[in-house]
Simulated scan of single mutants.
Amino acid sequence: MSNAYTESEERQELRKAVSRLAGTYGREYFTEKARSGGKTTDLWLDIAKNGYLGINVPEEYGGGGGGIGDVAAVCEELAAQGCPLLLMVVSPAICGTIIVRYGTEAQKQRWLPGICDGTGTMAFAITEPDAGTNTHNITTNARRDGDTWVLNGRKIWISGVDEAENVLVVARAHDARTGKVKPVLFVVPTDADGFEAHVIPMEIVSPEKQFQVFLDDVRLPADAVVGDENGGLVQLFAGLNPERIMAAAFSLGLARYALARATAYAKERTVFQSPIGAHQAIAHPLAESHIEIEMARLMNAKAAALLDSGDETGAGEAANIAKYAAAEAAVHAVDRAVQTHGGNGISQEYGMAGLLVAARAGRIAPVSREMILNYVAMHSLGLPKSY
C-alpha cells in the first residue's frame, strides 16, 4: 500500500535490493577504482544483470517498465552505499528518456537494450566552452550533405565518454524553411572518424571521468537524428526534468552516506568520558542534516510522481526545488561529517574529505543553484526575468 508520503512496497523492496547489492561493493571498492584509474564496470554490469539499470525503460526494449522514480531510487541507494554513479543520471535517465519518447521504433530497438544491459552506455553532450547554462549559444554545427549529416564543434564537461558506446550530442542545424538555426539531437558513436575526447583532470574522487570532446567533420547517417529535426527544444528539455530528479537522488545518496558514517563515528568516538554524539555541538548539526535530507527526499518523490503522471509543468518546479534542496543537504551533511571526524575527517583512511568535491559539484551541475533560483523567482513567484 502507498500514499502520497509512503513509497509502494515494490519501490521499498527495490531500494533494499539495490542497497544490498551495492553494499557488497561499498565505498572501499569505489575509491580503490578511483585512485587506481580503474572502472566500476563490474558494479555497472551487476546492476544491469539484476534489472535495475534500465528500470525506467519499457519492457519490450529490455527495461523494467518502471518510471523515473524507480531509476532515481536505484541511483540514490547506490550513492548511499558509497558508490555514486554519475552515468546513472546520464545513460538511462537522460538518454533513455529522450529515445523512449522521441526515437523511431528502429532506434529504440537499436539503442535501448544496450542502455538497459550496460553494454551500450550512452553519454550526453550539451555543454560547450562558450555555452554553459545558456543553451541558445551552442555553436556545434550540423549540416546536411546529401543523405548524411556532418558535425563540427566542441563540447566540455561530458561525463563517461570512455565508458560509452555512443554520445547523444546536441547540435544546431540551419533551417532552410525559416532561415533560423534549430537544435537537433544526434547519436554519435564514440569510435566515429573525427570524434576525439580528452580527459579533464579533476579533484573529485571518482572512477568516472570528465571529457572535452572535439567533433571534426563527423559524418553520420540520416537515422542518427533522434526525434523530429524540427522538434526544437521540447525534445531536448524532455531529458532535463529526469536529469534534475536524478541529480537530486545522487546528492541525497551522498548525503545519507556521509550522515550514516558521521553518526556511527559519533556513537563510538569517546572523549571526556562519553561518546562525542552525546554533545549537542555534534548531535544538533547531524540532526539538522537528517531533517534537510528528509525534506529534500520528499520533494524529489513529489517531482518523480508528477513526472511519471505526465505533469511536466508541476514536475519542472518540483524537480528544480528538489535538486536545489538535495545539493544543499549534501554539502551540509558532508561538511558536518568531516567535522565530526575531526582530524580523521581529512585522512584517506576514513574517506570523508574525498566526498567534499563530489557534494559541492551538486551546487554547480547539471544546473547551478543560481539558475534554479532564477527559475523559481520567475516561474513560481512571477518575478521579471533577470537574464
Rank of each mutant, 00 (worst) to 15 (best):
I126C: 11
N134C: 03
G351I: 00
D162K: 13
G314Q: 07
Y29R: 02
A266K: 03
K302W: 06
E196V: 10
K302Y: 09
E312M: 14
D46G: 01
G153F: 01
V226T: 05
I115R: 05
L53D: 05
G67H: 10
N166G: 11
G38Q: 01
R27P: 03
G51H: 12
A330Y: 00
V57G: 09
A173V: 10
H279V: 10
E77P: 07
F195A: 03
V90K: 09
E349W: 06
R110I: 12
I364D: 03
R177W: 11
D311F: 10
G314Y: 10
L14Q: 03
F211E: 03
L14M: 14
I276G: 02
L220S: 03
G277S: 05
L112G: 03
R219A: 09
E349V: 10
N50R: 14
E196H: 11
D70N: 12
G54H: 09
A365G: 11
I47F: 05
L381G: 13
T6P: 02
W149V: 01
H174K: 12
T41V: 14
I98H: 04
E349R: 11
K180P: 05
F186H: 05
W157H: 11
E60Y: 11
L43K: 00
E292W: 13
L87D: 00
R11C: 13
A301H: 06
Q212F: 08
L43Y: 09
A72Q: 04
R101E: 14
D191R: 04
N134L: 09
E196W: 04
L45C: 02
V271W: 04
L373N: 15
D70P: 06
D216M: 08
N230V: 13
E328C: 14
R101P: 06
A337N: 00
P242I: 07
A296M: 07
C95N: 05
G37S: 10
N241V: 15
G23I: 02
A262Y: 02
E165F: 11
G120P: 08
V90C: 09
V205W: 03
L220M: 04
A176V: 15
A80G: 09
G64Y: 11
G342E: 07
N137M: 12
H279K: 08
L220F: 02
V100A: 14
A278S: 12
E292P: 05
A48V: 07
T31V: 13
G314V: 12
A304I: 07
E294A: 15
M122L: 12
K33G: 06
V89M: 15
A171H: 03
